[in-house]
Amino acid sequence: MKFLVGYNGSEVSRAALSLARTYADLFGAEVLVVTSMVGGASEKPDKIGKAAEDLKFAENFFKEKNIPCETHQLARGMAPGEDMVRFAEENDVDQIFVGIEKKSRTQKIILGSNAQYIILKAPCPVVSVNSP
């Protein structure tokens, strides 16, 4: 069984990470932790470094419980929601865990919602986590 967690170091994505660890421990699942870099190849070095640090935290978080974990820093130039759905399809993921950050209506209209995209387009069940 394979779980996918969208992780960007935020508080809500840490909540998704924690829930995924609990489920992975219960079901004996492998966990794939993904950070999607919106800027693709033109992403700034400091953002790439922060994402790498965040993924190292996630990897250690799962190792504490001896849960198999792979981390992936994607820079394919897609919106994070689209990137996660495509990654899930490419890797035969069984379940996705994603944090939902609150946005104003204007932000949703202009930026869209990555979580909404994932929930509607994912090839598998999606567990959404709100801000703790």
Score class of each variant (00 low, 15 high):
N114V: 09
K2D: 11
A41Q: 13
F97A: 03
V126L: 07
N114Q: 13
D46P: 02
N114A: 12
K56Q: 12
I96W: 09
S42E: 15
G9F: 03
K44C: 06
T22N: 10
L4P: 05
N130D: 13
V85H: 04
Y117N: 06
C124R: 06
E53W: 04
S18Y: 10
A122F: 09
L26Y: 08
D25N: 12
S131H: 05
E53R: 15
L74T: 02
V126M: 11
P45V: 06
N91Y: 07
I109K: 14
V38F: 15
I109T: 14
G112F: 10
S104G: 15
A75N: 13
R86Y: 05
K121Q: 14
K102Y: 11
S13Q: 07
D25I: 00
E89K: 15
A122N: 10
S128R: 12
V127N: 10
P80S: 09
S42Y: 12
A58W: 08
L55E: 10
R76P: 02
L74A: 07
Y117E: 11
R105T: 08
Q73D: 04
I96Q: 03
N60L: 12
S18P: 00
A115D: 04
H72V: 11
G81W: 08
F3C: 01
F27G: 00
N114F: 00
A75C: 09
S113P: 03
M84Y: 03
A79R: 14
M1G: 09
I118M: 07
V93D: 08
R105D: 01
T22R: 13
E101G: 13
N66H: 12
S128F: 11
H72I: 03
A75L: 09
S13I: 02
D46A: 13
G112V: 05
